[in-house]
Simulated assay, not measured.
Amino acid sequence: MRTEPMPTRLDRIFARLDREPVRPVLDVPRMTRHRVVLFGATLAFYLAIVLAVAVTSWLVRFDWQAMLFRPYQQWPEIHAFLDYWVVLGQRGPTAVMVAAWLGWRSWRQHTLRPLLAFGAALLLLNITVGAVKYGLGRSGPHYATDVGSNEMWHWFQAGSDIFPSGHTANAVVTWGILAYLASTPRARRWLSALSAVLSLSVGLTTVYLGTHWLSDVVLGWTAGLLILLALPWCEPLIARAEAGILAQRDRWTASHRGPRTAPRPTPAPAPVAAVIGRAAGSTASGRGGDAAPALVASAAPQDEPEPEPDPAAPVRETILPSTVRANRPPYLAPGPHTARSERTPVTPVGSRRPPHSDRAPRNAPSAARPMTGG
């Protein structure tokens, strides 16, 4: 009866993981004509906002009206909640959360593209938004001095790096990258809408708290959208970076494993008769050269002729290791030897008692005993 081994708990876990489907990876987004047109329109809108603030247009007056309205005084009951909600736009906490999720995605899909795309988006965010912030030098509402002015070109004053809003741009890029790397079109649509609402709510929270102008939020939202639209241009660079990282990992692994040594060739087994002859010669070398032929001759049977092999019977060969064959004593007969369980039992014929010369056979007639008496 054949029994199958019982699977362990670890085997059942791995079997469940093997059955769990992995979501298919969509094609890498390309810079299509539609995306190029959308990128150009967004860039034009970005420049229009910067120009409107620079010339102190109606947008600046609207910023002052929203700041003087002081929303944090109009609705003080939601101030505590919005203090925590605005954290969803801070770069440190959001980057850690999204990087953890994308790291798990990279492990499941066996690719570094999610993490590398997120890193490229953050790099573009820091370069573009940071350059515009320090280049325009606009002060925030808490540091404004002239009512109705655009508060720009204050490079050496405190709080002069708020245009565009970094919280809003970071929220657009951090949560929008999830929609950019979504596995299905439906998930991409839902995540796009969710990231848009989340980023706008974070930006309006900064207006409520009085840390940003309303135009800062609009420009920050546009800056983050520009980075997501331009990300397909970085896809070839991301692919080359992934190939280089994997190649470097392979080289590092090969260098730490060390050179592989070729296995030693296994010597061919020597014939049993030659091994017995060498063993007999080495044994009898101390007693004289004539003893070796006698031992070799005595090892082969001489009384009975060797039986002819039956062609129908299966041939069994017992191959012994080289160390066992070399150490066999010379008095063993050459040839393969079968185990006791494989031998054919032989039942002796006749009585097992040894013969006695002074004992008469059991069925033989007994001799007449002499009669005594008178």
Rank of each mutant, 00 (worst) to 15 (best):
W153S: 10
A48I: 09
V53K: 00
V172P: 10
S255E: 12
R2K: 11
S139D: 07
R257Y: 05
P164H: 11
A292H: 01
R188L: 05
V132N: 03
S298M: 11
S199A: 15
H356V: 04
P329N: 01
H356G: 06
N327V: 00
L228S: 05
A241C: 14
S285D: 11
L10S: 13
V349L: 05
A243V: 14
G89D: 04
S285Y: 02
R2H: 12
S322D: 14
R91D: 03
T318F: 14
W233T: 11
V129A: 04
T174Q: 15
C234A: 15
T168A: 15
H256P: 00
W252C: 00
V50G: 13
D27H: 08
Y143P: 00
R9L: 15
W85G: 10
L295K: 00
W85S: 01
P361M: 05
L26R: 12
S57M: 06
W58L: 10
Q90L: 04
N126I: 11
P361S: 08
S285M: 09
A179F: 04
R264D: 10
G277I: 02
A193V: 15
F45M: 13
A368Y: 00
A268E: 14
R328G: 06
V173C: 04
A313E: 13
Y331T: 10
M1N: 09
A274R: 12
G176E: 09
G166Y: 03
G159E: 01
A333K: 08
S351P: 12
I13C: 05
T42Q: 03
L26H: 03
S201R: 01
R340L: 14
T206V: 09
A297S: 13
S165D: 07
H154T: 01
T56K: 11
L59H: 02
R188D: 05
G373R: 11
I49F: 10
A268V: 13
A292N: 01
L115H: 04
V197G: 07
I162T: 15
T3D: 12
L231S: 05
G166N: 09
P271D: 15
L231I: 12
A230I: 06
D11Q: 15
R105M: 15
R35E: 06
M152Y: 01
T318H: 09
F45G: 06
R33P: 02
H142K: 14
L26S: 06
W252G: 02
L115D: 07
P336N: 13
Y84L: 12
P311D: 08
L88Q: 00
L10G: 09
A241F: 04
D27S: 13
S106Y: 02
L228D: 05
A360R: 12
R316W: 09
V147S: 02
L43D: 03
S322P: 05
M6S: 10
F14W: 08
A144D: 03
V218Y: 12
A262P: 05
A54W: 11
L320M: 06
R186G: 14
V60W: 01
H154Q: 09
A280Y: 04
W213M: 05
G176L: 07
I245E: 02
I162F: 11
V324Y: 08
A291K: 02
T168F: 11
T338P: 01
V172C: 08
V28C: 01
W155H: 15
E317K: 02
T94W: 00
R188G: 03
L200N: 04
G176F: 05
Q302Y: 01
F156N: 14
P141N: 06
D358H: 13
R257C: 10
A243Q: 14
T206P: 02
